[in-house]
């Protein structure tokens, strides 16, 4: 019961998804099952929110390290949730919550600056990594470094300024053109080799799942 039913669900849903692609009569059924999947995805958001509450309430009750900040998380979560589900400040129940009301205000003035800045810090770390870790230790690393230099120079006006004296017949040696060439030839080839490898990996893993060979997602006692 604990293992068999999930396995049957995976196998039947997987086959249906494949069948609906190849066979038009199964298309509506495939669409509805995909819609089920989309709806379940929202429940996964609820699960995420519920889990967040559980973790932080637990931290708060047990007075774990930095428990005070858990209050911030919980308050932020609840205020945003009430503003969104209650459509506070919106004109009507049909209004888009991202366009008007408290929810929208909180998004643009709290969520947006926090999210953007969190990732903006990576600029500092990438610079620090360039200084401390990007070494021409061997020939391969040197090739990587040269390619990176050409791309970095080629994507700025400096690259153009440095090499725009090149004659038309040798224009591929202009840094911006070289950068374009790297992107559309060796980079394309390397990325395509990786893509084909990943593609094969996804296909084989999907087959293993649909045929019931791969069961690790069912947990430890999946047998």
């Amino acid at each position: 019961m604990r293992r068999e039913i999930p396995l049957i669900i995976t196998i039947s849903v997987g086959f249906l998804a494949i069948l609906s692609f190849f066979s038009p009569p199964f298309e509506p059924l495939g669409e509805d099952f995909t819609l089920f999947f989309d709806i379940i995805a929202v429940f996964a958001f609820f699960l995420g929110g519920g889990n967040l509450m559980r973790v932080h309430i637990d931290k708060l009750i047990k007075r774990k390290k930095d428990w005070g900040f858990s209050i911030v998380t919980l308050v932020g979560f609840l205020v945003m949730l009430v503003a969104g589900l209650g459509k506070i400040g919106a004109e009507s129940i049909t209004s888009d919550i991202t366009r008007e009301g408290l929810f929208s205000t909180l998004y643009y003035n709290v969520h947006l600056p926090l999210g953007s800045t969190m990732y903006a810090l990576l600029a500092f770390f990438v610079a620090s990594a360039s200084y401390r870790a990007f070494r021409a230790k061997n020939r391969e690393a040197t090739v990587l470094l040269i390619a990176a230099f050409i791309i970095l120079l080629g994507s700025t006006p400096i690259g153009q300024m440095l090499t725009n004296w090149m004659p038309e017949g040798m224009s591929i040696l202009e840094i911006p053109n070289l950068a374009v060439w790297i992107m559309s030839s060796p980079n394309l080839a390397g990325q395509r080799a990786i893509m084909i490898g990943i593609g094969l990996g996804v296909v084989s893993m999907s087959l293993r799942l649909i045929l019931g060979i791969e069961r690790t997602y069912l947990g430890k006692d999946s047998g």
């Binding site: 929202v42 919980l74 932020g76 609840l78 969104g84 926090l114």
Partner: peptide, 29 residues
Amino acid sequence: YKFAEHLFVGVSAAYWMCVGFWSTIVGNL
């Protein structure tokens, strides 16, 4: 920093829940 980080986690989780609820649960279910 910790204040801002914790606030972001809470607000972000609620954002996805609310938009998911109105767009897909109310919009499709």
